[in-house]
Amino acid sequence: MPPLLEVQNLQTHFGTLDGVVRAVEGVSFHIDAGETVAVVGESGCGKSVTAMSIMRLIQTPPGKIAGKILFQGRDLLELTEPEMQAIRGKDISMVFQEPMTSLNPVLTVGRQIGETVMLHEGLSAKDAEQRAIEMLTLVGIPAPARRVREYPHQLSGGMRQRVMIAMALACSPQLLVADEPTTALDVTIQAQILELMRDLKTRVGAAIMLITHDLGVVAEMAQRVVVMYAGRKVEEGSVEDIFLHPLHPYTRGLMGAMPKLGSSLTTTGRTKLTEIEGQVPSLRKPIIGCAFAGRCPEVTDVCRRMAPAIEEKAPAHWVACHYAARAMAAA
């Protein structure tokens, strides 16, 4: 069976006044039905742009998207805007990082959730409100019949993110793209939202593309991990592979502060991606050699001259590093 989503050699560039920003440069990965795939990497490495490209929410121009985004076998990049509108919110929906600003302040919560089902399932306004109440119940908002009539400013940040999730799941999508859904929330609320997403995932059966900074979240939620750096995929593997046998020095850098071995998978303490020495390279210039060479503790001349190809070093464990074999031997 073909995967639910297959991204092939995605390139998203932005034309700006001082040159082309190569935000995503040849990223490929896939997500199977019902699977949760985490996308991790430092800020600015192209995670959001990848997500927005899949949703086709990048403004073109200044943006320019190339490659293939196959969803259920159809290339989303080939679809017309109306065809894409029929997919957004129905087959693929998205939850954003900023719950405080992502809801429309002048429309009621019920209206905003109901709109999705009115659009995609042709429900009447009355039935849509009923569905909105059901969705609010599902995401654990108390007194949903009253809340549907309220406006976003009457809700807390955690509540708003629940509303966003309710909205995203209202049409039972096949794929939920969640772009740092908990980053803006308090730690206790973060745990609740994650719990909710895990619970709903088993009920709705949606696949999740989970973008996060937070390795604790990855360990709790995902089956597979895609590690991105400077608009490229540098490593991909199962959660166990990535946590226990990271092959790319960048991935190892990210894991730096994590407690070693299996304990990391069960620990509930969250760990942010650790700071790695040095600067992320500019995306405005083509990068020669390995994108991580400037910061890599194990860098050699080869790295500076030649970009490593991404290769499957172990079953379903991909890495783009000239010295992956050495890392494997050490692991």
């Binding site: 805007e81 509108q85 957004r88 929906s93 659009l119």
Partner: peptide
């Protein structure tokens, strides 16, 4: 340019 406009587009709302 506000986030909620992006949210509306992400829901499949027409132009």
């Amino acid at each position: 340019s506000q986030d909620y406009v992006r949210t509306a587009r992400a829901k499949g709302v027409g132009q």
